[in-house]
Write a protein that binds this DNA or RNA. Sequence first.
DNA 1: AGCCAGGCAGAGA
DNA 2: TCTCTGCATGGC
Length: 302
Amino acid sequence: MSRGVGRTWVRAVRVVDYDLGSTLDSGQAFRWEWRRGGWEGVVRGRWVRLEPGDGAGFRACTVVDPGDWGWLLDYLAVDVDPAEIGRSLPGDPGLMPAVEECRGLRLLRQEPWECLASFILSSTKQIVQIRRVVGELCRRFGGPVECPAESGPVWSFPPVERIAGLEERDLRACGMGFRAPYLLGTARRVASGQVDLERLRKRTMGEARGELMSLPGVGRKIADCVLLFSCGFDAAFPVDVWILRVLGEIYFPGRRPATSEVVAFAESHFGPFGGYAQQYLFHWARRRAGRVANPGGDGAGC
DNA sequence: AGCCAGGCAGAGA
DNA sequence: TCTCTGCATGGC
């Protein structure tokens, strides 16, 4: 619920090599918006504003009591050390520019349902379009989230039970087309308790992937996105059209490898932090192609 | 105007 | 197992 009065909580987060723009606007999450010099979004049901700092961190603001801020620091993965990841990844010449330029990018620890639903809606859609459909889904079926008047209104991501209770036409009205029955079918399976998204992170990556791929509209790529962006499996390596192209350029010059070949290669080549390599390459390739606005960037890269 | 987008599922070889 | 196709919608 928007309101014009009320107090604000502020926390200075001290962290090096953290770039909010490349983290929040690299196609992992679809709800963050750049407004008046800060990134605004909803994390664990709370409205949050994040303002870039002087290079040694950033500033976080909420309008409800944030407690110890642990929920936000966990979501943003501020505990992750990019230097350790850089040492773990292979020193391939073709990979190095992406690793160096995207050092400040973190993999978020998102809520599984929002992540899964968003990526079901992502298939053969451009990121700008995914953002629009997800926004429409929240506007129609989410609940009000308290925020400053000048930032609102803001809605939560609809709970799985809410989506499960809708009809296919309600979802199609959001502009998601043929993905509507996939989202509805998955929502109903999750809401019924047949699949427990919260427990996926406690299982092996292979088990969690199999569970996700049993859901309608979820294949290998979308399953890997959920493993990587919400379950903490940093070795997961989603292969989409961008990654297919960029890995083709670097590792398969002169031919066009099949997706299955690239998936198998990535699985054995990049190691325990392969997912970071994947996101570095994805963001780097999209930035190179001029598909990232990069607001608030310092001009020095990602 | 036409090609393509952070794919998936089903059919046929 | 691999390849091909239909699927809604809209950006560039």
